[in-house]
Simulated scan of single mutants.
Amino acid sequence: MSEKIQPTAYPLRMPLPLREKLEESARKTKRSLNAEITARLEESFSHRTLDEVEVAKAAELDREIARLSMESSKYSRALDLLMTKAKAAAGTEDEDSFGPQILEVAEALGRTEREKFQAMMRREMLEN
């Protein structure tokens, strides 16, 4: 019978801003913090050429842009629906109930569009 060797835990101290960046990256790649750190460490030992690294980074940015585009479309549809409902409620007592919802969705849409724009700029910089 073969036994699985369980890796030993290693407490890692790091500056809070670095941890926050890693957590954000882990969230975007849908990995745990441990998996994100492990993947980044393994990548640092791979012997890839600069071209391979740039192609991988471009592919990662393309995936991020596609994800953000889908998220942006979702918020745009939600905003359109809320605006339609708000217009239909004009002159009724429900008229004011849509303002906070519209603001929340519009802010989420703005954040997503900014993130997408930044990713697109990073992607463009790779091409130049």
Score class of each variant (00 low, 15 high):
52 E>H: 02
93 E>D: 13
74 K>V: 00
25 S>P: 03
58 A>D: 10
15 P>I: 04
25 S>Q: 11
29 T>R: 12
29 T>C: 10
86 A>S: 14
17 P>L: 02
103 L>N: 05
38 T>V: 15
67 R>F: 11
95 E>H: 11
90 A>V: 11
5 I>H: 13
90 A>G: 07
79 L>S: 02
22 L>D: 07
39 A>P: 01
76 S>C: 04
93 E>M: 07
68 L>Q: 10
86 A>P: 02
68 L>I: 10
122 R>E: 15
24 E>D: 14
122 R>S: 14
113 E>S: 06
74 K>Y: 06
34 N>P: 07
66 A>T: 11
37 I>N: 02
74 K>S: 04
6 Q>T: 14
104 E>P: 00
89 A>W: 05
70 M>D: 12
69 S>A: 15
29 T>N: 12
55 V>A: 15
79 L>F: 03
9 A>T: 11
17 P>S: 06
111 R>S: 09
102 I>K: 00
6 Q>D: 09
14 M>W: 00
110 G>P: 02
117 F>P: 03
54 E>F: 09
63 R>E: 13
97 S>Y: 03
82 L>Q: 04
25 S>I: 05
80 D>V: 10
87 K>E: 15
85 K>S: 06
93 E>F: 06
94 D>K: 08
124 E>Y: 09
79 L>M: 01
123 R>G: 00
35 A>M: 12
60 E>D: 15
53 V>Q: 08
83 M>F: 06
88 A>K: 08
112 T>Q: 03
9 A>C: 08
10 Y>H: 11
68 L>T: 09
84 T>A: 13
20 E>G: 01
47 H>E: 15
19 R>I: 06
72 S>Q: 11
41 L>M: 08
105 V>E: 04
48 R>I: 12
115 E>S: 15
74 K>E: 05
43 E>D: 07
90 A>N: 11
62 D>R: 14
120 M>C: 06
91 G>H: 03
72 S>R: 06
82 L>E: 00
127 E>M: 07
109 L>C: 04
84 T>G: 05
92 T>W: 02
64 E>M: 07
96 D>M: 12
2 S>R: 08
30 K>G: 06
126 L>C: 05
96 D>V: 08
119 A>L: 05
62 D>Y: 09
60 E>F: 13
66 A>G: 01
36 E>I: 08
16 L>T: 12
